Amino acid sequence: MKHILVTNDDGFESKGLHALIEALKPIARVTVVAPTMEKSACGHSLTLTRPLRFIELDDDFFKLDDGTPTDCVFLSLNKLFEEDYKPDLVISGINKGANMGEDITYSGTASAAMEAVLQGIPAIAISQVCIDKCQNIDDMGYDLAQQSIASLVKRIFEGEFPLPERKFLNVNIPPIKAEECLGFKVTRAGKRAYGNDAHVHWNPRGHEYYWIGLPRLDWHITEGHITDFEAVRQNYVSVTPVHLDMTSHDDIAVLEEWL
């Protein structure tokens, strides 16, 4: 039987995580290792300054005490799997909110998939896009996300993972009902339009503090292959191949001449 390692960045109690588990259990054995608390936007960070503990909550279900999604994958492969027996697939999600464009670099959800492919294991990051920051995703449900990830995993297990080493699939689900979806669309990562939203407040003792806000999901229109933003807006499930080589290959010759 195939074996899938599941994690997320919203924490072990997230409804998106449990929706993912529900979708995968008919397909494979599922082992879950998730952070104790939300670790959104933690990026590809490892915890190096303090020890971490696995806490077993149920069979094949663990929380990693104050660990990051990257910690969850890294330590799971060290503790829960034998050296010659690794999971067939790592899936991170279902994230509450989009992970599109350059947000991939912030994303704890995507970073768990990054860690998996660095360790030689195929991986998928899956996120549920919301209409705006006020939408209650849990009320909307995860039916389309569940159907989409089940379809992708079955396709992988019936054949093979479609990407070579050190590359993963980044999947974003449009905020619509399953029957409204037009299918899958292979996309490139779009160009996110960023703001600088931070709110200043004062605590009861008069000390100033800042709270980083959640920016609107805006992007720049760019020429070329359809982007993840555009596909989701057109009611497609966006599937983006992501690789970890951050070299700007097109600029090597220019830089060599410049130097």
Results as ranks from 00 to 15, higher is better:
I4T: 00
V6C: 06
K15C: 07
G16H: 06
I21W: 14
R29Y: 05
R29T: 09
V33K: 03
P35G: 03
K39T: 15
A41L: 14
H44G: 08
L57C: 06
F61G: 04
F61K: 15
D65N: 05
D71W: 04
S76V: 07
S76C: 08
L77F: 04
L77S: 08
L80Q: 08
E82R: 09
E83K: 09
D88H: 15
G97W: 04
Q119K: 12
G120Q: 13
A125E: 11
I131E: 14
K133R: 15
Q135S: 11
D138M: 03
G141M: 05
Y142P: 03
L144E: 05
S148L: 06
S151T: 10
R155L: 14
I156F: 15
I156V: 10
P162I: 07
L169S: 03
N170Q: 04
P174K: 05
I176G: 12
I176Q: 06
K177P: 00
E179W: 06
G183M: 02
T187C: 12
D197R: 13
H201F: 14
N203P: 07
R205V: 06
R205W: 00
H207E: 14
I212C: 01
I212R: 07
L214Y: 09
W219S: 15
I221G: 15
I221W: 15
V237W: 01
V239T: 05
V242D: 04
D245F: 05
D250K: 14
V254E: 13
L255Y: 12
L255I: 12
